[in-house]
Design a protein around this nucleic acid. Sequence first.
DNA 1: ATCAAATTGTTTGATGTCCACCAATTTTTC
DNA 2: GAAAAATTGGTGGACATCAAACAATTTGAT
Lengths: 158, 158
Amino acid sequence: MAIPLKKVLDSDDTDRIDRGLLPDLVGYQLRLAQLAIFKDLKRTLQPYPISPGLFGVLVLIDANAGMKQTELAKAVHLDRSSVVSVIDNLETMKLVQRRAANGDRRSKALFLTAEGRRLLQRLKPLVLEHERRLTRHLSPAEQKTLVNLLRRIFPEHR
Amino acid sequence: MAIPLKKVLDSDDTDRIDRGLLPDLVGYQLRLAQLAIFKDLKRTLQPYPISPGLFGVLVLIDANAGMKQTELAKAVHLDRSSVVSVIDNLETMKLVQRRAANGDRRSKALFLTAEGRRLLQRLKPLVLEHERRLTRHLSPAEQKTLVNLLRRIFPEHR
DNA sequence: ATCAAATTGTTTGATGTCCACCAATTTTTC
DNA sequence: GAAAAATTGGTGGACATCAAACAATTTGAT
């Protein structure tokens, strides 16, 4: 069970690598942070067949019962065609229902099933626990600062 | 060319949507920001067959001539198998070369071709311009704060 | 020196996403 | 009211990514 010598010597590991101008790019740092967060959230949701993305979809449909697929697509920044298979999956899992929209025979209204709502309620505490873990090294003021700075990167996007 | 009436009335558009607890999640805000940034960077690199991800790979190989594929994989947070096709592509474009590594007959050493270096030098100003556009609403101090806060989310990742 | 374990690049198969279309339907224009 | 344009959910193809397997090779243990 001895630790390989090589490992010990370059405990720096990846860090002997020169990242050039990358670390100076806000987008690069953002991507790193986001990657790490998604990885953690994925592990948090592990026991359930729900990815971070699907969690977002459930939250949205729950908060906007009857919303149409195109609206959902816009809200989660997915292509309309991607939403089709996302909803297909959630429908197969009996978490979401497509119903005929009232005024428009083209569009479908999305609803969480009772089971979907139940699952979402069970998921939420896990996600909040994940969130606490993330921000554990940041004071509330710092969290606020972070979110505000992020928002200001693209003011045109509100 | 008149603007559709409907559009004018819900100029709120997506914004009549309730995002539930999502906006309170740091990971959600991060994902939004990162998505927008990648979209902008992609458009910036439009004239060249180089995605934001490929740009990062070029920078890394340039700064670490002779690095092996596994090292690259770790550095860009890609699977080893994904790096295979990434390098395949860059090699087809004659931007990168795989050479036999000196001490190890399993691994291959990666190098930028002259053309690869030339392209990278042409790309860098575009990326820096993109970066300026991003941070145009942030003072240098704020930029620093942002990057530091991001780094502190996962201290274990340095 | 030998043999077990780890590493490297690769292939294959699954998944998630986009894009370019499409038919049905609705909205706008004239 | 009829024709043109826009919108909606959907299909099919392309592509990026991962995970699991694999053969060749290197490293470690004894």
